[in-house]
Amino acid sequence: MYTPRDMDLPRPDEDAYLRASSAWPGVELNRDVFRSHLNARGGTTPGRHVEDLYLACACARGLPAALAHFERRLLPTARQALTRRHMAPDVVDEAMQRLRERLLLPREGAPPRLAEYDGRGPLETWVRTVALRLALTELRERAARPIPLEEALLPVQDASFAALKHRHHADIEAAIAVALASMELRERAFLRLHLVENVGVEDIGRVHGVSRATMTRWLKAARDTLAERTHAELRRRLKVEDSELDSLARTLLSGLDLSVRHLLR
């Protein structure tokens, strides 16, 4: 077996501790405490956000310096994420208060929930998503308002087709639903992120491990497929002239995003 003499074999967990503790000035966490925290959460496999785990562990243990970092670095971005979604200030405030309670207060017989963070993604993002979840719950409690489908499907400027579209409205909706159902799970997932959540092409690309250009291609392909299948489904359901159908489809396509958005929601 090949092991050169005196070779300073890299110790991943040792390196991880040093690197992580270098990242947070003033936050001093015992080496063994951190190591067992780390090992309980998957250890040092590649891609693990070791520095963030260090901070989360320190916060869960109530180290004041760590809590200061949490207040200063993590809470503001969470607040901004909510504000960016045009949530009412009182909703945001309520969510932020709940966020602090949820993440930092010890539970009975268990450490604060922040300790559950396992490092498979940046801590900042984790906190942000928890905040959003809390805010959405808060909103759901206040009831969401529906968007009327008709508006989405009837572009106002095309009065001549309004009647036709109105007549076939149920079929149109059904056709889109069928077309959507026929798509792959993953295609639906990124279409939804794009159309409903308005996430940028580049960001979606990253989730799927492809470049912006590729993601753009994928999105276009998915939308083309969707349009094509909706068209085919409509053709099957409606016994209208081809030319009439084409006009309908063309107009419909301009509203497709809205319809799909609605159906994907």
Partner: peptide, 13 residues
């Protein structure tokens, strides 16, 4: 709701 969370996480700060 989870879609919104994924959207939020994908977006970056």
């Amino acid at each position: 709701a989870c879609l919104a969370l994924v959207g939020e996480a994908a977006r970056g700060p």
